[in-house]
């Protein structure tokens, strides 16, 4: 069995890579492995796409990177500009967005600030003025400032996606993970949101999107990692992506 190692001494190019996985195996029940021997290196500030059919392990891989799940074996190193990256510096946008539907857009965005603020005031729902202003700034940036006080369940799919982006930005993340990002939206809105996302992410912010849309991966990422049945089966420059190259992956 592989041993879990976590020593950081052996990592090469400490500054260059934001995500480094070595021989990562994961199984939810000690039976079937949903991730098989994953090796992955992602450069800081890069835009990477993960493509593969449903069940290929993309979501599990994201949960390993956010450290919501621990690998059964192998090593995970998520690096910030200085040393290991704290959890809250990884912004995670799950497939169904994970918004609190009964709360307003603003309240949802403020959730991203919790790691920075204390407990007493916030328990009563009072947030520091600075954080509220910051949240409004991000809502404005994603283009839904006028709807800040609307409950999430009244918003449209595209608007909810924007709220989720604002929440992730509120964490001031160095890495943003977006699972099946914009895949529930119509193509026009999806592209509009992708354009915006690329525009507002910082230069050093690493962006990883999981998608099954080859066109989206080609147009919005630099590198594409291809996954199938829990294994990484290849990596190509996104510009070279076309239907023929990945045909056998999806069949």
């Amino acid at each position: 069995m592989l041993r879990v190692t976590n020593s950081q001494k052996n990592w090469d190019n400490m500054e260059e890579y934001a995500v480094e996985l070595r021989n990562v195996w994961y199984s939810p029940d000690r039976g079937n492995h949903t991730l098989k021997n994953i090796d992955l290196k992602i450069k800081r500030g890069a835009r990477t796409a993960l493509i593969g059919p449903s069940g290929s392990g993309k979501t599990t891989l994201f949960k390993i990177i956010t450290r919501l799940l621990k690998p059964c074996s192998g090593s995970v190193c998520i690096k910030g500009s200085i040393g290991e990256l704290e959890k809250h510096k990884v912004g995670y946008i799950p497939q169904q967005l994970g918004l609190v539907r009964s709360r307003t857009a603003l309240e949802n965005v403020l959730i991203g600030a919790h790691s920075r603020i204390g407990f007493t005031g916030t328990l009563l729902g009072v947030f520091p003025k600075k954080e509220v202003e910051l949240a409004l700034k991000y809502l404005n940036m994603v283009g839904i400032a006028p709807k800040a006080d609307m409950k999430v369940y009244t918003l449209s799919g595209g608007e909810r996606q924007r709220v989720a982006i604002a929440r992730a930005l509120m964490q001031e993340p160095e890495i943003i993970l977006a699972d099946e990002f914009v895949s529930n939206l119509d193509i026009v809105t999806a592209r509009e949101i992708m354009d915006m996302m690329i525009k507002i992410k910082g230069k050093d912010t690493t962006l990883i999107i999981a998608t099954h849309d080859i066109n989206l991966a080609r147009d919005y990422s630099e590198t594409t990692v291809i996954m199938k049945n829990g294994a990484r089966i290849g990596e190509i420059s996104s510009g070279d992506l076309d239907q023929d190259k990945v045909k056998d992956v999806f069949t």
Binding site: K63, T66, L68, E86, K87, H88, V90, G91, Y92, I93, P94, Q95, Q96, L97, G98, L99, V100, I111, G112, H114, S115, A164, R167, Q171
Partner: peptide
């Protein structure tokens, strides 16, 4: 919804 909890836990709350 477990996904909402997961998304929020990932913020380090």
């Amino acid at each position: 919804d477990q996904e909402v909890i997961g998304a929020v836990r990932a913020t380090g709350i």
